[in-house]
Design a binder for these strands. Structure first.
Lengths: 337, 337
DNA sequence: TCGTGCCGTCGAAACGTTTCGAAATGCGAT
DNA sequence: ATCGCATTTCGAAACGTTTCGACGGCACGA
């Protein structure tokens, strides 16, 4: 493997000249730069990562702590991982993937050995040991999701509270007064995942504020669980004309199946909204109005915030991404319009 | 951050003693080792990754080239990624994740800068540019999947050919003589993914060898595509009593729905086998006999093979993982039994 | 003609580790 | 008492880069 000495020799200059030519940190004569560039090309030279790490401040590697929990929708999880990796590359950063138990213990390892410049945390729970670890390590870090204690942390996430408000208002504005909410699998709430209760609580609060009747139920992921969930909300709200789904795609699809089997027509009999779905609802039947959960936006912003910490101009803070409402025809005026 | 000099000072020895004590490459007096261990603990010392990379041969990092293609089932993809990461950790290796276009260009970058010791390739196509790149780079590498040209490569994968044979024989042994095969989405075949045609061709060949009638069709992932696929095989084989599904979970589930809607009972009217599914078929209705695609086995073996290349005792070769057949009651004797 | 300052380049130190060769020590055998 | 050997420890070089300080040459103004 060619090193900087080889390049210097071929270009007929000293290694420091090569280094400056490549980093651009000092001015170099155009003719010299050209010779160096050519030597680099000829030798297919790339600076040794270890040496750069050792000497320079930067490793150009980020740790991505991404445990995949039971109940987490794998495609959505994947979308976040891919978005982080893609966004990091825009700043010439590579991503070291830490999963499962390594998401915590590996984080300490790679941070203490100065393998990474910064950290991105995915899928934090309300009280996540990784947040304390991040505080302890003192490395630039960004959390995607909002844990209970955000002190000293930089966090970014969709504004799930605002998303819930958006969903409730939409249905209320259309004249619906009895609204159901089908949530994630029960174990997702039990495990302490951060966003499901954020959505649920804001949903219930906004409904109460507007004086509409609501029923919430989680939905286990198998078809029996989905069936039970639909039964639960319809039993609790016999006059239900609006339904919000804060659950993953397969469950959404199953809910629509169950509704269709029961002869309930969307949106004629029931207005349905998909809340915080990572993917398009186009393929659902019918396509659902959706408040998207934009993985790429969250992740891009997370990387930006991490880079800002490198630059030193960033205080720890929590940043919310504004939700949007996409109409696809699954809502219609209700009885109180 | 504490370095080896700090540890040496605290333990009252020289840095080389510390290094040898930690690596175990020379014998160290028990009492000295104990003092060093204590100093390490006290300072929470971890060897600087950059320095170790620079000096030592090893970076303890593997590149995982894992492009996620359209039509690839994200949960299955995720399962492979997780398995690779987990297996790598058993050998004290971390994993740098390269996705999408970075799966190719990033591979060159990280390899040329000596950031990684080895490479694992996921989801190779029949003629994949990454295989040439790997040959060029000359780093230890293992391919999960079998490209057309395996010269000079170390490859490992489920023996899809044998899996197809297993499926055909099972049905034939049970007395079925007209057998359908529903495959992956059409674009998966068009793109040149390596395993779908491997399975299909071996399936057709074994069926021909045994003199049974078969019909194959790919299945697009939406419900219309699945419906069309089922129609296609039933139309082609009016007397079909056996069906093999080489497609992802959602499609399998949809196929079963369509069959049930058509009043076709499994296994009474039709024996169904799920081929090369990464996940349990327990939640399907009914659970399907399955020839599992064991992500963890392939990935564990891939890592072992990569480590063997580090050790120098490994010739490039192709290794197949023996498929197994799991009975779950979705097959029954056919008319020719 | 002689300073003065800028531009382009160079030499050398430093980063933290691993590892080679050798020194120091203790011990038994001669 | 001396030698040789084994055990334990140490000093120093080397890995490839970045970066600081410095130096030579040149143009400019005095």
């Amino acid at each position: 493997m060619a090193n900087i000495h080889d390049v210097a020799r071929v270009a007929g200059v000293s290694i420091s000249t090569v280094s400056y030519a490549l980093s651009g940190k000092r001015s170099i004569a155009a003719s010299t730069k050209q010779r160096i560039d050519q030597a680099v090309l000829q030798l297919d030279y790339r600076a040794n990562a270890g040496a750069r790490m050792l000497k320079g401040a930067r490793t150009q590697i980020l740790a991505l702590s991404a445990p995949l929990h039971a109940g987490t929708h794998a495609p959505a999880h994947m979308a976040f991982v891919l978005s982080v990796v893609t966004a990091a590359r825009l700043y010439d950063y590579d991503v070291l993937l830490l999963t499962q138990d390594e998401a915590t213990v590996g984080l300490r390892r790679v941070a203490r050995s100065s393998l990474v410049d910064g950290i991105v945390l995915l899928d934090v729970s309300t009280a996540d040991p990784r947040t304390d670890l991040v505080r302890e390590l003192g490395l630039p870090a960004t959390v995607i999701g909002i844990p209970n204690d955000t002190a000293g942390l930089t966090c970014v996430d969709l504004d799930f509270e605002q998303a819930a408000v958006l969903a409730v208002r939409r249905l209320v504005d259309l004249g619906h007064r009895e609204i159901g909410l089908i949530g994630q699998a029960p174990l997702v709430y039990e495990r302490g995942s951060n966003f499901p209760p954020r959505f649920r609580d804001a949903f219930l609060a906004e409904a109460a504020r507007l004086g509409v009747t609501v029923a919430f139920t989680p939905a286990a992921e198998e078809s029996a669980g989905v069936r039970a969930a639909v039964e639960h909300v319809t039993a609790a709200l016999p006059g239900m004309t609006g339904l919000v789904l804060h659950c993953n795609e397969p469950v959404q699809s199953m809910v629509l199946d169950v509704l269709s089997q029961r002869g309930i027509s969307v949106p004629n009999d029931l207005s349905v909204i998909s809340a915080c779905s990572s993917f398009s609802t186009d393929h659902l039947n019918p396509p659902l109005d959706v408040i998207p959960l934009p993985a790429d936006q969250s992740c891009t912003r997370a990387i930006e915030l991490t880079m800002a910490q490198f630059a030193g101009d960033a205080e720890p803070h929590v940043e919310y991404i504004e939700p949007t409402y996409v109409e696809l025809g699954s809502t219609a005026p209700g009885p109180h319009r």
